[in-house]
Design a protein around this nucleic acid. Structure first.
Lengths: 106, 106, 106, 106
DNA sequence: ACTGAAGGCTGCCCGC
DNA sequence: GCGGGCAGCCTTCAGT
């Protein structure tokens, strides 16, 4: 440890400052995430208070999420087919769609 | 399904409106949570780009978090012991007993 | 279903025999696990009968378990730091750096 | 702390000895439980190595467990009916079966 | 692609 | 009988 650390003029000092920043940003974000998780639990609790079955609500939410990804997935497959039929031009985007769809199938 | 549903004048209609509200609030919150999770991953990725070892960073963050919960946990345990020792906790003798019990646990 | 199933001379029959063996082994083990879980509950119940506070006992047992894993965790983290500091770890300077890093984490 | 603790001649000393015994017994049992849990995981791993789908195996085992309790439940209900028809004598066992079935139904 | 960990969810047990 | 608390399981994700 040297006097340099005080004003971070060393490489190590700079790294340490950066490290501190990184850790603080992450911890701040994780705190926010926790707050939201608590909010979600509160919504469920309130729903329960209003007579809803929490377990079923969770299933419902999960199901809707699955359906959304299914829709996206179908759109990707549709794009793939369109491409195969020459309905999409040979753009990087089209190539990416093909690669992604092929990956999903494996 | 009746004409009532349109303006929610039935009990079922009210429940349905409530359900819709609940699900939408939860989905909104989960979206926010996902955004934050992505932000966290980006911070790690950026750190990695700056030469930091992500595995160690994660361990560090986890360790700091665990230390915080440790403090809370210790307090809980101490409270539990105090409660178990009842009125003793306000006397010097009680304090000594608590200190002894705490020592046995470590 | 064919006569082959009786003496397992088909591939499917062999798989079925294997499956039966797997499931039976698992169920046997889970039974044993349940027996032990019951034994544990009985020990707590007996302790309660002797005037011990079960809640505190559970907390105590959990705390002791956590302390054990804490030691392992600390060792892991130390190993990680040592690895990150690479060859420095065999020099006095490296030792100092490790000590400093460990101090920062606490 | 007094010299009495060495040979446990005090009430507190006896309690401490008992406490130690309780905690040790529980920790021993939990160790055994962990060993069995590891064994179970190994059986699944081995099954996976033989081409079985672990996720499906777990579902299968769970399902069988549920079926077993269902069978027991049905047996209890059957006993209840038998008793109602005077097919079970008014023995303590029969009474217990009724009480248990009634509890399950509520 | 597989493995191992981290977080979330479910079912269970205890207390009120 | 119910609700909270807790252990176990499942799923997802980073790492190799």
């Amino acid at each position: 440890m040297t006097a340099d650390i005080g004003h971070n003029s060393t490489v190590a000092g700079a790294a340490q400052t950066q490290l501190k920043s990184i850790v603080e940003r992450i911890e701040r974000l994780e705190e926010e995430k926790d707050v939201i998780a608590i909010d979600i639990r509160e919504v469920y609790a309130e729903a329960k208070g209003n007579g809803f079955d929490v377990k079923i609500l969770r299933k419902l939410v999960r199901e809707r999420k699955r359906e959304q990804s299914d829709v996206l997935e179908e759109q990707e497959i549709l794009d793939l087919y369109k491409h195969a039929l020459g309905m999409l031009s040979d753009t990087p985007l089209g190539e990416a769609a093909i690669a992604k769809a092929a990956g999903s199938a494996s």
